[in-house]
């Protein structure tokens, strides 16, 4: 049994890779890829008549495999299926770091899941509040209710848009420019930032179109996403490269944080670094850049 540390609500989540919970042969190597989070799937990747078998596999995969620093999230079946309650029991009993709520459309959906999670935590002697939640918004209704969904529970660490189902509802197809989803992505991002949680983009399903994948990822970064959902290990490295800060950004951030701490110790609130005004408002962003830089192996200092 590999005990997992208490999940962190806010951590680096640039990449979140889907894996079929039915296939421990794949899962056992997950940490090698260097992905930030893995998403073990009980939903669409598992055939309807194998939902039971997938849970037994998942339980042992959670309990026996050492994932190291890789976060382990489980995507459960929708609330309109007969599966989600047992899915939650197995996630909590197995000690998953978090649960992804599929097809989430309202704050009530989050509360329904949260109630079942809390009951499972009590049943299996897990610390109440340990299991984190995230929601996948897959419909126009989900997007319109993004704010209330994000704010529904202190367990919520993020929201993700799910392109396949969303485009189906909107009667659109993926476009190179991203115009088909720009409004939905933007609305979800604003809601997530208003509440102060993370926001993740959908998967890119054409594995042969790396250029399209890279362009979409660049747009994700420019729009303000924290990370992207992936379906294949070969998509990990490009995302990490695109989300990495530049060396100049890292140096600037380091200077700012150091100068701010020194200034604050002397009772100074606003000052300049390389000719640019800096005050407390810049510091969380600079610290985030340093954390990102550390994860990318670009910063080895002790400021974060």
């Amino acid at each position: 049994m590999i005990p997992r540390p208490k999940p962190e609500r806010f951590r680096l989540r640039r990449t979140m890779m889907f894996m079929n919970a039915q296939k421990p042969g794949l899962i056992k190597d997950a940490y090698i890829y260097g992905v930030d989070s893995i998403m073990l799937d009980l939903e669409d990747a598992v055939a309807e008549n194998q939902k039971d078998a997938a849970r037994f596999s998942l339980y042992h995969a959670l309990k026996t495999i050492d994932y190291g620093d890789t976060e382990v999230i489980v995507r459960i079946n929708g609330l309109d299926t007969p599966h989600w309650q047992e899915d939650i029991r197995v996630c909590v009993a197995g000690g998953a770091d978090g649960i992804r709520i599929a097809k989430c459309e309202s704050a009530q959906d989050v509360l329904t899941v949260e109630k079942a999670v809390e009951a499972a935590e009590k049943e299996f002697g897990v610390e109440v509040g340990r299991t984190l939640l995230m929601a996948a918004l897959e419909s126009p209704k989900g997007i319109l209710n993004a704010y209330e969904i994000c704010a529904a529970s202190p367990r919520m660490f993020g929201v993700a848009i799910s392109g396949g189902d969303f485009r189906k509802c909107m009667q659109t197809k993926p476009t190179a420019s991203g115009i088909d989803m720009v409004t939905a992505r933007g609305m979800m991002l604003i809601a997530a930032r208003a509440v102060g949680i993370q926001c993740f983009d959908t998967v890119f399903t054409d594995l042969d179109d790396m250029e399209g994948f890279i362009n979409e990822t660049k747009q994700n970064k420019e729009m303000g996403f924290d990370g992207k959902s992936l379906i294949n290990p070969k998509q990990i490295r490009p995302v990490h490269e695109i989300f990495a800060p530049t060396e100049k950004e890292v140096m600037q951030a380091e200077l700012m944080v150091r100068a701010f701490r020194e200034a604050a110790a002397q009772g100074i609130g606003v000052f300049t670094v390389n000719g640019k005004m800096v005050d407390v408002a810049f510091i969380p962003g600079a610290e985030r850049t340093l954390k990102l830089a550390k994860a990318c192996g670009m910063y080895e200092g002790d400021l974060v």
Binding site: P24, A53, S57, H60, T64, I65
Partner: peptide, 16 residues
């Protein structure tokens, strides 16, 4: 199969 897979399959078959 890994040990954990083997266990999962035996358990599932028995419960089924």
């Amino acid at each position: 199969a890994l040990d954990c897979t083997l266990k999962a399959r035996v358990e599932c078959a028995v419960f089924r």
